[in-house]
Simulated scan of single mutants.
Amino acid sequence: MRMHRTSLALAGSVLLATGAACLLPTAAQAGAAATVPCSETALIAAVNAANTAGGGTITLTNGCTYTLTSAHGNDGVNGPDGLPIITTPIALSGNANTITRSATAAAFRIAQVAASGGLTLNAVTLSGGNATTAGHNHGGGVLNFGAVTLTGSAINGNTAGGLGGAIYSSGAAAAATFTSSTVRSNTANQAAGIASAGATLTMTSSVVTLNTAATQPGGIYSSGTSTMTTTSVTANTPTNCVGSPQPVTGCVG
């Protein structure tokens, strides 16, 4: 009788252990970041969910181009944004991904980062943004009041009616950091590449090229702190950095 009870107890322990083993992978999967399907609707939903959750990593479908056909963010001051305004620390983890405004869509920039937010791009290109709201037309690709970090990424082919064809960072709390990234073929009234107004700009092993502005500088405008390491700023029009309120260390012409 004792042996029978012991066997039952052992069998119960095995079943419990087996059940726990079966449940653990499911729980782990539930906490993992799912890949966002290759659609505008899915990307917008993922950004909204990340903002609601207080931030997080959004994993993009390999090689997908997410085409935005309408604006999904607007603070009522700075004009429309393709993505919902980034109010928390959000990372877009990509693999040869592009987020672009449809050529037939109304004008809007790609993203706005609030002072409380952070946008990290890994292997992602932002393109086709167009900031044209009169008096609030800075940052064709990104308007940044918080933190923007690019690694192996690009902001190419965007337009601003004011400053910062690719990105406009504003305020002492704002920072833009580029590592092994590219800012190319953007246009603006001034600083078609990067405008850093009283903000911090850090560039390492990156390239700013072929950006065209109506007013110098065409490449980088800085009235804050800028640090350039093994970074090339070339072939921008009408100048690379000449005309910037503060000298951009390492930038010639």
Rank of each mutant, 00 (worst) to 15 (best):
T133N: 11
P80G: 04
S205H: 13
A176N: 12
L92Y: 00
L24T: 15
T234H: 08
C64D: 01
G82Y: 01
A20V: 09
A195R: 03
V36Q: 00
S196M: 07
S127F: 01
I44H: 04
G54K: 08
T18G: 14
S196R: 06
P247E: 03
C38K: 00
S206C: 03
A195W: 07
A147N: 13
A71N: 07
H4P: 15
H138S: 14
T120Q: 03
T230I: 08
S180W: 02
H138Y: 15
A235W: 09
A105D: 02
G193Q: 04
S206V: 03
I110V: 05
L163Q: 15
A106T: 11
G76Y: 04
A11H: 12
G117A: 10
A176E: 13
G253P: 10
M1C: 13
G73N: 04
T187M: 14
P245G: 09
T212C: 13
T202F: 02
N156W: 10
L121T: 01
L83D: 02
Y221L: 10
A11P: 12
A123M: 13
M3Q: 14
G165P: 04
Y221E: 08
N236Q: 02
N74K: 07
L150C: 05
I90E: 04
D81T: 11
G140N: 12
T200P: 02
G157Y: 07
R2Q: 10
T202S: 06
T35K: 07
S70V: 09
T179E: 06
A134Y: 11
A199L: 04
N97I: 04
T41N: 15
L150A: 09
T182N: 15
S102T: 05
T212M: 09
G118I: 06
F145Y: 15
G198D: 05
Q29H: 13
T120P: 01
A131F: 02
A27H: 14
S116I: 03
H138M: 10
P25E: 08
L150D: 05
G118D: 07
L119A: 07
N156G: 14
Q29W: 10
S39P: 00
D75A: 10
A214K: 11
L126T: 02
A199K: 02
P89W: 08
G94Q: 06
G253F: 12
